[in-house]
C-alpha cells in the first residue's frame, strides 16, 4: 500500500507544548553552553579556540588549582552523602515499615519536613546553632559536660566542608527514607511470611530478604544523590557566600561556576570559562550516569512478584 496514513493532528497538539518549551529552554541552551565553551575572546573579538579552554581549566595553574580543589571537595561532599544519608535513610525506612508501628505517619511527616525548607532557612539556622557567639551548640555540649569538643566547625578549613555535607544530609535524608519506605511496602506479604516459616526473622530477615529486594531503589537514590551533589550550589552560597570560605575549603563545582561566570569582587565574569566549567560538570554527570546505567543497573537483579 503506497498510501500513507494521515497525520494525526491531535498527537501533535498533545506533544507540541511540552516538547517546544523543553527544547527551547532546556536542550538548546544546554548545547548553547557546550558550544560557548569552545570560544574565547582575543584582540579581534570572539574566536573559536577548540578545546583550549579545557586545557586552561585542567592545566593552567591559575585555573586548575581552583578546579581540582572544587572537584575534590565535591567528591568528598558526595562521599559523605553516600556514607551517611543513604544508610540513615534505609534505617529510618526499615523502622518505619515495621508492622503495627504506631504513629508511623507522624514520624514520616516530621522527618520529611527539613526537605521542604529552602536552603536559605537551612543554611542560616545551622549557622545560628553552630555559632560560637550565640551558641546553642556550645551551650548544649556544656550541659552534658562535653564543651571541650566544641569548635567553630563552619569556620575551620578542616571541618567546614564535612559540616556542610552533614547539614545537607540532615536536610535531604527524607528523600531516601520515603523512596525506600515505598520499596519496602511493595514487598509482598507472602515473601515475608515464607521467610518467617523458614525461621528467618529480625535482622537476618532484613539483610537476607528485604535488602536484596530494595537494592534497585537504593541504586536510583544513589544516582539521584550523585546528580544533585555535583549540581549543588545553594547551601554553600547561602552559608559561606560565593567565595566558599574559609579559604575556598568549601568550594564545589556549583560555586566555582557561579564565581567564574558572574565574577566576584575584583574578578570580572567570564562567560567562556563559565561555559567550560558547566561543560566539565556536564561531562562528569554524564559519565556518572552512564557508569551507573551500564555497569550497575544491568547487574542489579530485579524481582517480579
Amino acid at each position: 500500500m503506497a498510501q500513507r496514513k494521515p497525520i494525526r493532528w491531535h498527537v501533535v497538539v498533545f506533544l507540541a507544548p511540552a516538547v517546544l518549551v523543553y527544547t527551547a529552554i532546556m536542550i538548546v541552551p544546554l548545547f548553547g553552553t557546550l558550544n560557548l565553551s569552545l570560544f574565547n575572546f582575543d584582540e579581534s573579538g570572539r574566536v573559536f579556540v577548540g578545546l583550549r579552554n579545557f586545557a586552561t581549566l585542567f592545566g593552567d595553574p591559575r585555573w586548575s588549582g581552583a578546579f581540582w580543589n572544587a572537584l575534590a571537595n565535591n567528591a568528598w561532599f558526595f562521599a559523605v552523602h553516600m556514607l551517611v544519608q543513604n544508610p540513615v535513610g534505609v534505617m529510618l525506612a526499615a523502622l518505619l515499615s515495621s508492622p503495627r508501628l504506631r504513629m508511623a505517619a507522624f514520624y514520616r511527616t516530621a522527618i520529611f519536613i527539613p526537605t521542604i525548607l529552602s536552603f536559605v532557612i537551612v543554611g542560616f539556622v545551622w549557622k545560628l546553632i553552630l555559632s560560637p557567639i550565640w551558641g546553642i551548640a556550645p551551650g548544649m555540649l556544656d550541659a552534658v559536660g562535653l564543651k571541650s569538643l566544641f569548635a567553630p566547625w563552619l569556620g575551620r578549613e578542616g571541618t567546614a566542608l564535612t559540616t556542610l555535607a552533614l547539614i545537607s544530609v540532615w536536610q535531604f535524608v527524607g528523600i531516601p527514607m520515603m523512596l525506600i519506605y515505598a520499596a519496602l511496602l511493595s514487598i509482598p506479604d507472602e515473601v515475608i511470611e515464607a521467610a518467617e516459616l523458614d525461621g528467618v526473622t529480625g535482622w537476618a530477615q532484613f539483610w537476607k530478604i528485604k535488602l536484596p529486594l530494595i537494592l534497585p531503589a537504593i541504586g536510583i537514590i544513589s544516582i539521584l544523590t550523585f546528580v544533585g551533589n555535583f549540581n549543588a550550589f545553594d547551601l554553600i552560597y547561602v552559608s559561606q557566600g560565593a567565595l566558599a570560605g574559609p579559604n575556598y575549603a568549601t568550594d564545589i563545582l556549583g560555586t566555582f561556576l557561579y564565581r567564574t561566570f558572574f565574577g566576584f569582587q575584583l574578578q570580572l565574569g567570564d562567560p567562556h570559562m563559565g561555559a567550560t566549567i558547566a561543560t566539565a560538570m556536564f561531562g562528569i554527570i554524564l559519565v556518572g550516569v552512564c557508569l551507573y546505567l551500564f555497569l550497575i543497573q544491568t547487574r542489579l537483579r530485579r524481582y517480579q512478584f
Binding site: 548553547g32 549540581n231 561566570f261 558547566a278 554524564l286
Partner: peptide
C-alpha cells in the same frame, strides 16, 4: 525515542545551561 528525549532532563540538571539561558 521521544519518551527517552523527554526523560533526559531528569538526569541532566537545567542549571548547566544557565549561561545560554541568560543570553536567551
Amino acid at each position: 525515542l521521544m519518551a527517552l528525549y523527554l526523560a533526559l532532563g531528569i538526569m541532566i540538571p537545567i542549571r548547566l545551561g544557565t549561561v545560554a539561558i541568560l543570553q536567551l
